[in-house]
Amino acid sequence: MSDTRRMLAEMADPLFAELGPAATDSDWSRLDELGLPLLLVSEAGDGFGGDHVDALTVFRLAGYHALGLPLVDRIVASREEEGTEAHFHLGAFARAAQIAGALDAALAMSVAYVNERQQFGRPLGKFQVVQQELATFACEAAAANCAAMGVAEALDRGDAAFEIAAAKLRANRAASEGARIAHQVHGAIGFTQEYPLHDLTGRLRHWRSEFGGDAYWSKALGDSVIARGADAFWPDLTARAD
């Protein structure tokens, strides 16, 4: 990790954790102070001059802490004009990254909960079915995180239309599976307003549909793969990153 990126993470992580889902408009000044809304604007344009992996770091943490202000959307809008395809694509990347963060947070919450909560005289985490479900959840969270990283790298290389479609679709599916498991292992407590799981799963539910739902991206991706043809699939896939 580069020094700027580590610094960015070290600033954003505690701040987003502190602000959390309850952040209000009066908290914008804290984000402005760090230059975060202009993260993707060049230094020449008086911005932060971050690259897409920097953006991934911030988007992911915003998702992880269920940040209650639309910082991510501001970052996207300050880079690309709303209504354009570039804006839609960058937005899809942002949602994939937020999903990745929120899944990791919901997973951590679920693991902590099942290790704590006792039933039948032992922690729920001792039951194999619960363990296997959470392992499945971990794999989904891992897939979303890798997909988001793959897009960030592709965006820094240049054209990332393929990667954005693939990653948003993969993250969407992970969002649905992860939220399902998180709620299941929490039982009724996770169904309350007081318990913070819904701050994450509610966002996951929206993010899955925003900037392209599953059907949108699977059609886009399917069309482009079929148009290139079977024999081009693997050579294209490898050539994009080589």
Binding site: C146, A166, R170, S218, L221, V225, I226
Partner: peptide, 19 residues
């Protein structure tokens, strides 16, 4: 239906290859 399936499986292939 086939376009959808191709898209979904391509998305998985790309992600798994990265991982």
């Amino acid at each position: 239906a086939t376009w959808d399936l191709v898209g979904r499986l391509a998305s998985d292939a790309w992600t798994l290859r990265l991982m």
